[in-house]
Each structure stands twice: as C-alpha cells, then as structure tokens.
C-alpha cells in the first residue's frame, strides 16, 4: 500500500523539554492509532503534522506536499482534515452554519456544491435532523460529531483526530468508532487516543509514542504479540509483575515476566502497550521486522 504521510527526524522543543525527539513514521490509507501516556507528545505530533506548529527539525510530507514553503503548506492544508483535542465551537452558529463556515475556510467556494457537501457530512455523522439547531443547544456528543463533520468536509485525504472520543459515553463512543472506520475507507486517518479498545477495533496500524519518541510502529496484532507469554493469572498480586490488578473473577491479572509454571493468559493490545511503555531500551520489534523486510 502506498505511503501517504511520511515524517523523518521530527524534533520539537518546548523550553528545555523535548516534546518530539527524532520522530519518523510512515502512514498509509486506513486508520492508524497513536497511543501514548499523557505528555508523550501525541498532540504535539498531530499539531506538527497538521501544520499548526512548525517542527524545530526534520521533515514530513502529506500526500506529496511538504510544509517547508508557503505554497507547500497551503497545498498540504488543502488535503487536511483536523479535529483538535478540544475543538472550540461558535455557540450561536447552527450545526450547518458551523460546518459551512469551515468549508468556506477550506476554500469550498461554489455555494450549491458546498451546501451539498455540508449536508453530506452532517448526514454521515447522523446530524441531519439537528443541522439547523444552534450548537449551544446540542449535547457534548453531538457537538463532537459536528467537529468531526467539520474535519471531514471537503473530503480531505489526511484526517488528523486528536482524542475524539474523550468525554463521550459508551454508546457515543461506539457511534464514533463507526464514523472513524467509515472515514478511514480510502483515506489516511491518524487517530490519537488513550483508548486501546478503539485502536484494537479500528486501526490497521498503531504507533506508540512515549517521551517524544516512537516506541513502536506496527500492526495492533504485533503490539499485542509483544505480550505473548507475559500475562498470567495468580491468586494474589505477583510482586514481580510490572502491573497487576484484581479481575472481576477475584484472581489477579499480572503483566511482566511471569514466574515459572505461571498460568498464562491470552494477552490484549493493552498488555502489549503497557509492556512497550515499560520496555527500557525502546526496542520496536515490528519496525525492526519491517526494516529487515
């Protein structure tokens, strides 16, 4: 599959802190999950890729457009759909007006075509019935869907979603998963999230970022596989485990290096993620495998 977004050696400092430290990645069509703890640099990476902030070093291209020149940045922005972490809203605008406004800022100039497109994306996020309602009268979940519609308007080739499901109830999260899955058909989506379930269910690729560095890049299955043979059950919390918690069944689920004879459990993507964060050398087997290939 063709690489649509590629970054090489991206570096960004905030004062003395390295928010991004030599980040390289390549994305293809479909949904790529971006996992990482708070402060890992996920939002910073997305803001750099969305051209909201320039990187101190390194380079990247989106669909062949590099942001180095004003013209390149403009062309890149024309291919971009961006849903920031805390998108603001104009409370007195209706859902239709807000998305229409964003469509204009995306240089959609033909009024008839633009309005058709706005109706299409509002329909896609299931907000057709409330498109005339002012944003201040919509629920948080509905407003988040309006923001997604605004990101989708104009059929951008690269969609950047920064924790879009934060604050949503389970039903809304499921609805959002559907929308993101649809959005990922035929376009490149980079989805930053804390929800490993979202990544497991939506993403064909996953990137783990920690302390501004890429700690893993591969498929969700490869990330899960990192925990093969490293999850076990015990009657009490194993002091040698890197993480352990009591399950609903009353036994403890431990993650780490199991003792001999331990009752091994099937790992989840979350287990692989936890172990990747704890991996002191930051080795990324999937990448190494890719390099070998």
């Amino acid at each position: 599959m063709t690489v649509t977004v590629s970054a090489s050696g991206l570096t960004l400092r905030y004062g003395g802190t390295r928010a991004l430290d030599d980040v390289s990645l390549s994305l293809r069509a479909g949904v790529t999950g971006l996992l990482g703890p708070n402060g890992a640099g996920k939002t910073t990476l997305l803001r750099v890729l969305a051209t909201a902030v320039p990187a101190d070093g390194g380079s990247f291209t989106v669909l062949g457009h590099a942001p180095g020149s004003a013209a390149g940045r403009q062309n890149l922005r024309r291919t971009l759909g961006y849903l920031p972490q805390n998108p603001g809203f104009h409370p007195d605008f209706s859902a239709f007006e807000f998305v229409d406004y964003v469509a204009i800022l995306k240089e959609q100039t033909d009024r008839t075509a633009r309005h058709r497109e706005v109706r299409r994306v509002l329909d896609a996020v299931d907000l057709s019935d409330v498109r005339g309602r002012r944003l201040k009268r919509l629920s948080g979940g509905m407003r988040q869907r309006v923001a997604l519609a605004a990101a989708l308007v104009g059929e951008p080739g690269f969609l950047v979603l920064d924790e879009p499901t934060v604050g949503l109830d389970p039903e809304q999260r499921v609805r959002f998963r559907e929308l993101i899955a649809q959005a990922g058909e035929g376009r490149t989506v980079l989805l930053s999230t804390h929800q490993t379930e979202d990544v497991a269910m939506l993403c064909h690729r996953v990137i783990v970022l920690a302390c501004g560095r890429v700690r893993f890049e591969g498929t969700p299955a490869e990330l899960t596989a990192r925990a093969d043979g490293r999850v076990w059950s015990s009657a009490a919390r194993d002091p040698g485990a890197r993480a352990g918690w009591r399950t609903g069944a009353g036994t403890f689920r431990n993650v780490g290096d199991p003792p001999k004879g331990a009752e091994l459990l099937d790992p989840t993507l979350e287990d692989g993620y936890l172990l990747t964060l704890d991996d002191p050398d930051g080795a990324a087997p999937a990448q190494q495998g890719e390099a070998a290939a």
Binding site: V3, V23, E155
Partner: peptide, 16 residues
Amino acid sequence: MSTTTMPPAPEVTRPP
C-alpha cells in the same frame, strides 16, 4: 532516531 528505515516516496495528490 526511532526508526531505521526511510519511508518510500509518498503519492502526490492534487489539492481540491
């Protein structure tokens, strides 16, 4: 650097 490979050349698309 976190990765050891250079990504292949991306596909160029025309803006809308």
